[in-house]
Nucleic acid binder design. Structure first.
Lengths: 338, 338
DNA sequence: CTTGCTTTTGCAATCGATTGCGTTAGCGTA
DNA sequence: TACGCTAACGCAATCGATTGCAAAAGCAAG
């Protein structure tokens, strides 16, 4: 009957015939307690099935051994699971965090009303925060970062940014993708994405720069707003096609958007890559498996997650860690021909 | 300067010129405090940027507003992220849980030494547990379930099972898949999977029953152990091919295994579905996108997750919720011909 | 002005661990 | 035996909220 009672440290103390102080220190491997006695107390605790109550421990120590991972992305329930990119990022972050002996708390933010970030921070549920994606919360992040240090953001590096961020070189990645399309002789390249999001607007910047460098006039009719979900992206692509605006290539700002575009093109009887070349962004797992396999700008998520968590732990230790930028790589597959 | 200080409830009490008791009740919308005063105190607290400290609250209330999601699956770091099935399941669970106003704590178990489950339970970090996959921990789960009620497991329903589980009808699903292959005229059907895992052994049961019903002799040489990772599955398929054992179909116990097998077959110059039909299990997102598109036994994860969380909340409320079984559906695509 | 009842409010104990500081035990030396 | 010193150990305060119980305040009727 030992192991299912709601055992407290005081019970263990009684069993071991010492004070709670001693039990606490023994379980924490505090050298104030002689080695053999420590082992003995640990054995007694383990045999009794005793486990430290983390709520009490967190309160007293003011730390939770937990990292919060926050997704401030959109309000609809479907968002989290719909995007393979975020899911993969989450998995990688979880690996890095648990490897360091911390727990992972998932925070989905559906209510971005004033002070949402402060509400998370002050709840003291976690010792540090990773924010995946800036969404439209640049200001809120900047403000929070002023007083809260253990915070790292995955996203683009923006001007006037106070918080620490890790992200791909969005401008360079987009530039590389569009340059590749131009190199294939494509001249009317459509851009699919939400300009309101910082990372996407950086990719747009790269798109524009590539066109300008090639001396090609930039046609606003080719810039199509497209959300991250497959359905809305499909719709956006269909409208582009039906608009009659001529185009011979698509630069999609995510793989999901690219895949949706490919399906929309196929439905319209347009050959990829024969008539239209398509390039995506992220290089998620499906990209290599699609038909045709998708050319995409690869973000090294494993490295990204490692960097994020490294920086976060530095900041938790009080050091001041700078933002980091990762170099993207263009992975060429069949979807753009050549 | 209000909102960045480490404000405590006592500070709010001072601001509002009432006692802490009153603040606590006001923030909890306790009708003991008159409506207008409640609003007033809430406003003062919000303006000061005060947020309740969850560690303290959890300790006192003995509840954390958190559900733990546990993956007891394998010890290597790569496991979590490698399997799209678990990732998708996690996303769906997270949706269901956060929708109910609870937080999600991810517990990756790397140390399954004696009492691992008890260590999680007694840490009191969560109010309830979802265990994704039984792995080889049937006994441990049974034992824990005797004294700990808010616990639901995703997995197969086994004989002598005490804990509450939700899962697909593995036997029926496998039966349907193999029946379909038999219907196509296939007679030498290989089975790829780890028999040690309960769910897989149930699928094996369905495989055997289908063969028996068709009057086909069951050849042990066609039963190949294969882990869930792509690389090891590829290796297993390659060995089957090289063994020279004749076969005209593969029933893979997961889509990842199926996709690995298809690639191994392609590498050996064997046509799918021309020479060999392949069926997978799970129907993950990639299945529809692969070349050729994969026939697979679909598990309705959205419904599964909803059911799991429903049952869990019932159990947390003290009701006794029974196990549930979901009906799988065979999604026929090109990989098995026909 | 009492009395009696209801509505508000606050005191103080409690949740279960950690830790600064003071006390005791143990041992060696004079 | 007395004294000094260090190594072990325990007392009690503390972390920040919640809540049972009792007291105070408000109000109406007698």
């Amino acid at each position: 009957m030992a192991e299912d009672g709601p055992l407290k440290m005081a019970d263990v103390a009684r069993l071991a015939k010492v004070s709670m102080s001693t039990v606490s220190r023994a379980l924490a491997d505090n050298p104030l307690i002689p080695e053999d006695r420590r082992r003995e107390i640990q054995r007694i605790a383990a045999e009794a099935g005793y486990v430290i109550n983390q709520s009490a421990r967190s309160l007293r120590m003011r730390k939770t051994q937990t990292i919060g991972v926050v997704f401030p992305l959109g309000h609809d329930v479907g968002q989290l699971i719909s995007d393979p990119f975020f899911i993969e990022m989450f998995g990688r972050l979880a690996d890095e965090i648990t490897t360091r002996g911390y727990q992972v708390l998932l925070c989905r933010v559906t209510d971005t009303s004033d002070g949402w970030l402060n509400r998370i921070i002050q709840s003291h549920r976690q010792d540090g925060l990773v924010i995946v994606g800036q969404s439209d919360q640049h200001e809120a992040l900047n403000h929070a970062a002023e007083s809260y240090h253990p915070l790292v953001v995955w996203g683009g590096h923006l001007s006037g940014q106070v918080y620490c961020s890790v992200g791909t070189d969005n401008i360079g990645g987009a530039r590389r993708a569009v340059d590749h399309l131009l190199g294939l002789g494509r001249k009317r390249i459509a851009f699919l994405g939400m300009l309101e999001l910082p990372e996407i607007s950086l990719r747009y910047e790269g798109y524009v720069r590539a066109l300008r460098a090639a001396g090609i006039e930039h046609d606003p009719a080719l810039v199509i707003p497209a959300h991250f979900s497959f359905e809305t992206a499909y719709e956006a692509a269909r409208e582009l096609i039906e608009s009659g605006t001529p185009f011979d290539a698509i630069f999609a700002t995510s793989d999901i958007i690219a895949l949706a575009a490919i399906q929309a093109l196929a439905a319209a009887g347009i050959d990829v890559p024969g008539q239209v070349s398509v390039v995506g962004f992220d290089d998620i797992a499906i990209a290599a498996q699609s038909t045709p396999p998708l050319t995409s700008v690869q973000q090294d998520l494993a490295k990204g997650a490692r960097t994020i968590v490294d920086l976060l732990f530095k900041r938790m230790a009080g050091e001041d860690a700078p933002s980091a930028t990762l170099l993207p790589k263009l992975v060429v597959r069949k979807s753009c021909g050549g």
